[in-house]
Design a protein around this nucleic acid. Sequence first.
DNA 1: AAATGGCATTGATAAATATCAATGCCATTT
DNA 2: AAATGGCATTGATATTTATCAATGCCATTT
Lengths: 192, 192
Amino acid sequence: MIEVFKKYIREKSKVSEEDLDKIIAVCQVKRVRKRQYLLQEGDVWKYNAFVTKGCVRTYTLDDKGNEHIINFAVENWWTGDRESLASGESSIFNIDALEDSEIVLISKSNFEMLCVQIPAFNDMVNGILQKSFIVAQNRIHTFISLSAEEKYLKFLEKFPHLVMRVPQGMIASYLGITPETLSRIRNQTAKK
Amino acid sequence: MIEVFKKYIREKSKVSEEDLDKIIAVCQVKRVRKRQYLLQEGDVWKYNAFVTKGCVRTYTLDDKGNEHIINFAVENWWTGDRESLASGESSIFNIDALEDSEIVLISKSNFEMLCVQIPAFNDMVNGILQKSFIVAQNRIHTFISLSAEEKYLKFLEKFPHLVMRVPQGMIASYLGITPETLSRIRNQTAKK
DNA sequence: AAATGGCATTGATAAATATCAATGCCATTT
DNA sequence: AAATGGCATTGATATTTATCAATGCCATTT
């Protein structure tokens, strides 16, 4: 499955085959079963992580025990907690697998080494970061300007594949609404 | 006022004094009056912009003419539209000044040149990007997990200086609530 | 085949938030 | 000093969304 990661790097960067080997050499492949944790609240996140197979989610738990899903990651997406990784402080997030999954892990120090030694890798990483920021900003925009229904319709547009793959209640959580509300929205929009 | 920018770079990076001169050489200082636009919806954003004085906001207008404020930027903050800058496509955002302000502009090509020629500058820029992403992610978290009141209280904690400086209705917009709701929240929490 | 667990759905109701309209306050302009 | 414009506040009401509870449907386990 590491081939998925190789393919991704080839497409997204100008890293040479030689350097690609260098990257792969420091990769660790982690297999996780459905419901298994990759990160638990309170632990420090120490990797850069890339999903080659399956699906994971990042979420928090509030006082009342409600889950709040910050994001999903399927094949070819990165996951992890950048804040904990950067600061070395314990994470407020949980990450677990929604399906049996396979994750490529690169430790913080190895990752930094790759960034220094392989400029093309560094560029790729920063390009991804930039894109992630833009995605985050657009999501913020949906929160300040759209109703529950509009957020759902936009989600449908952007992530049609996720709608089939992830339980509906989790999509509701991602959108910041309750499962009941999402169910009703779907019911209503279906009628139209 | 360019001194503000110099000081910022000295603090945030390891750029040499010599390279700092190189940076300043390609800076353009723009003065804007209160209410004046820096960017209007439909235009392409072509700069990296740093606020040395004053305060600007980035917002969109919806069909009903409502403003939705994506963010504020005061002294020592960056502003602009990364998405438009990166893609070259026209922006959906407006940026205007809430006070008479002074903005340091660096064109896209000059900025890229600086990133290539001055590694320490590149590192600083990517560090800022990383921080921006984390801030954005945390803001997303507030939207999916907090009530209007909780969002406001968190805003107070994080940006006490902005509360004094920005009209209350704009803070409401930033939080994704109406001015009336924010007014009532303040009234109630004051009583406690 | 029966039992179980996890979801989604649906209904009734409550709570949060938005909308609309009116008023008043203050700073700035004339 | 009077007039103006921009906000914030307040009240009444509507709308949206959440909460609580019950039911049903599948897929998986026993």
